[in-house]
Amino acid sequence: MFAHFDFGEIVRSLPYLFYTGMTFTLLLTALATFIGIVVGTLLALMRLSGISFLTVPAAAYVNLMRSVPFVLMIFWFYFLVPYIGQWVTFSAQPLQVGAFASSLVTFSLFEAAFFCEIMRAGIQSIPRGQVAAAQALGMTYPMVMGYVVLPQAFRNMVPVLLTQTIVLFQDTSLVYVISVTDFLGAASKVAERDGRLVEMYTFAACVYFVISFAASRAVQVLQRRTAIIR
């Protein structure tokens, strides 16, 4: 059954798959994780603020993102981002944004909802006495959060945040639905051009597996090590 398996096809397309495809995938993963954590932390602070005009919209946003398929959200943003761009820049026409910018906005804003819940759990895991002690020392709210609560919350949540990043890495493959050339997009373009679906999709699966598997093992090791320190 592997008689017709053409390894040469894979070798020939390696530069395209990795320079074009994997670069896009990894860059998107890294930037979306970074922006997602920043926005997610802000959302978490809003949800925990106890001020209803902050908690209500933040909770609504998070719950919306969590109850709708990611694929549907990708479509939403694909059509919305030009209009958001128009609105932000006051231009007369919907803004033409590139595939990367559009994907980045989508993933950052979608993942922010998930990072929000992780950071919220992290913040809530910090004993209330820590906040009281920081306040008793005269710290203002931004200082309490910035120097005492968030550093600890972030540290406690590093393994979970990294695990979510691995999920995000796998999810980037979904940009396939808006025909963007990420790693899977590149593989599928070669596959269809040359009629080599078996080779390309099998190879893509192996690459995703190796990266995700290695990364999740690394997270486990990290988790075990931090568990000992604490």
Partner: peptide, 20 residues
């Protein structure tokens, strides 16, 4: 867990019938 769902769908849909 370590292969994206979309890729798994492609494996079942496009690759499996060729290997049988």
């Amino acid at each position: 867990r370590n292969v994206p769902l979309l890729v798994q769908m492609f494996l079942w849909y496009f690759v499996l019938p060729e290997l049988l």
